[in-house]
């Protein structure tokens, strides 16, 4: 389980998080929504200890993340897969080497046969052909980079998966593929996931619960239908802001004959 308890964070004068509390249960997928620059990625980075809160606590698997030492943090991170916004693939390494780095067990990492099999398995899980393994990140499209990023994140068989804007910068078709992938990984691997996004439609499709981060605080948390029915002015303002883009995406998807999430898209 992941818990954030009264977390505060500021960068110089800019208060990013002001008493944020949140809970993600085992096996659950929580979508953290909010406008750009509101602190969603900061929240995600606190969960795996890339950033420390100024005050408050972050608890993952019963461990108090801000208090962990170097080794304990490394051990915890081996159980958390992190999908970065722009993939964050290592340019000088092939796709196979990138995914191999995600194998956090040192014994397995040094076993060439295991690594080869695991890389191919991860590529299969993210719907990429085996030939991609020998390519370099510069040879991949944006959507493929994201999928390789996901493959690297799941290579170590993590218990938790953190997605930082997994569909940002992608066209609607590729965004839909990534959303489908998140759903599939949740179902096949049973991981606990936190998806940071400002794509309402995609988040509502993949999440069991949705949280809205608004002006440095959690403004609303609940199942997607509950959030959609909310009369909170901040929730309405955020959903209305996203409405136009959502409709454009929905139309585009319907045009492509894609399925999934149409009802929620129309509700929004």
């Amino acid at each position: 389980m992941i818990e954030l308890l009264d977390v505060h964070k500021r960068f110089v004068e800019n208060v990013v998080l002001d008493g944020v509390s949140l809970e993600v249960k085992d096996g659950e997928t929580l979508a953290l929504l909010g406008p750009s620059g509101v602190g969603k990625s900061v929240t995600l980075k606190m969960i795996n200890g890339l950033l420390r809160p100024d005050a408050g606590d972050v608890i993952v698997d019963g461990l108090h993340v801000p208090q962990l030492g170097r080794k304990e943090l490394a051990t915890l991170r081996s159980r958390i897969g992190y999908v970065f916004q722009y993939g964050a693939l290592f340019d000088s390494m092939s796709v196979a080497e990138n995914i191999r780095l995600g194998i956090t067990d040192e014994t397995c990492y040094n076993d060439a046969k295991f690594c080869e099999d695991r890389v191919l398995e991860c590529l299969r899980l993210v719907n990429l052909p085996p030939e991609v393994a020998t390519k370099y990140p510069a040879e991949l499209s944006g959507g493929m980079k994201k999928r390789v990023g996901i493959a690297r994140a799941i290579a170590g068989q993590p218990k938790y998966l953190l997605y930082d804007e997994p569909t940002s910068g992608l066209d609607p078709v590729n965004a839909d593929v990534i959303d489908g992938l998140i759903e599939r990984l949740r179902d096949e691997l049973g991981v606990t996931s936190v998806v940071v996004s400002h794509d309402v439609r995609g988040s509502f499709r993949v999440a069991d619960r949705v949280a809205l981060l608004w002006q440095a605080k959690i403004r609303a948390v609940g199942p997607p239908d509950e959030i959609l029915a909310s009369k909170d002015p901040a929730v309405l303002q955020f959903l209305e802001r996203d409405l136009e883009m959502t409709l454009i995406q929905a139309e585009s998807r319907e045009g492509e004959g894609e399925r999934g999430g149409e009802t929620r898209g129309r509700n929004v």
Partner: peptide
């Protein structure tokens, strides 16, 4: 470049130094 493209964060998030 590795810092601003989050490659260093990625290494850390994989539990690697």
């Amino acid at each position: 470049t590795m810092r601003v493209t989050e490659q260093i964060d990625a290494l850390e998030s994989l539990g690697r130094s």
